[in-house]
Amino acid sequence: MAKTAVKPSKKKGMKGTSRTSLALISMMVPGIIYLIINNYIPMAGLVVAFKQFDYAKGIWGSGWAGFGNFTYLFKTRDAFNIVRNTLLYNIVFIILGNILAITVAIMLNFLKGQMNKKVYQTLILIPYLISMVVVSYIVYGFLSMDSGFVNKLITAFGGTAVSWYTQAKYWPVILTIVHLWSGFGYSSIVYYATVIGIDSSLYEAASIDGANVWKQIWHITLPGLRITIITLVLMAMGRMFYSDFGLFYQVPMRSGLLSSATDTIDVFVYKALTQLNDVGRSSAAGLLQSVLGFIMVLSANLIVSKVDSDSALF
């Protein structure tokens, strides 16, 4: 709609425009070249998902395998399990992660004082900086059977120590906590950036009208965050079939007994293929994840654009 309005002016200044567009495109040249080399040409390598990869023959010389590389993903009893885990964790992470981050961002906005704000913002970012491997040691420090804090706490209150690393039932909660812990600082700041961009006169007007804090949040802050929320959620949906490998592989200390709760598609593929070195099969899994994620984004975006076309990603 906007396009039609612009078009006439475009035509008028045709001469200037072509020089302008040339200049603009020339700016993008380094980036375009980079994306082509780093992203698009290797994408052609996805064809290896349909090949029986032979190292001597390379990607193009290897023989075709049809869909043979995909079948192992569905042959196991775990297939359902790993897909369910991947999706459920992602859904929980998206929902809880965003709720937590938005809450923190709004609280940060209501907070007075410069110094404390700054300190809080710095400190909550720390978890984001610690790599998952190191996090796994820290988690072990908390959950180890006889020297872990949690068990020390439990026994101090007269309970019996829990063997955390052998019982799968606890891990959906543990992994969710670890994920939220490591990411909440960063995403809070992303939301906070949007929150402070909301016109402050809106709040003033509202409070003159007698709206309390909750009403202000509900009617001003959250609508102001709408586009940011939708964008981030849609982007996260594109990664719906992927998982944070470090979180699911390192943090459970690779304890096999936990695998029913901790195996996601990435972890399963990694574990399954370390013995086989099968490039074709791992590509097949990656391709499937991308395509499914792509479909997720497209359909979610379609729904969003039906309801509220301004917020749609594209």
């Binding site: 079948t71 192992y72 042959k75 196991t76 009893r77 775990d78 052998t166 304890s255 096999g256 007994l257 695998s259 029913s260 195996d263 399963f268 574990k271 399954a272 293929l273 013995q275 086989l276 099968d278």
Partner: peptide, 21 residues
Amino acid sequence: STSVANQYTACCNVMDKYYTA
């Protein structure tokens, strides 16, 4: 394991789960 690659992959997963435990 080529001829039984799918079964092998699946069994590896089961073995990883229980062997050390």
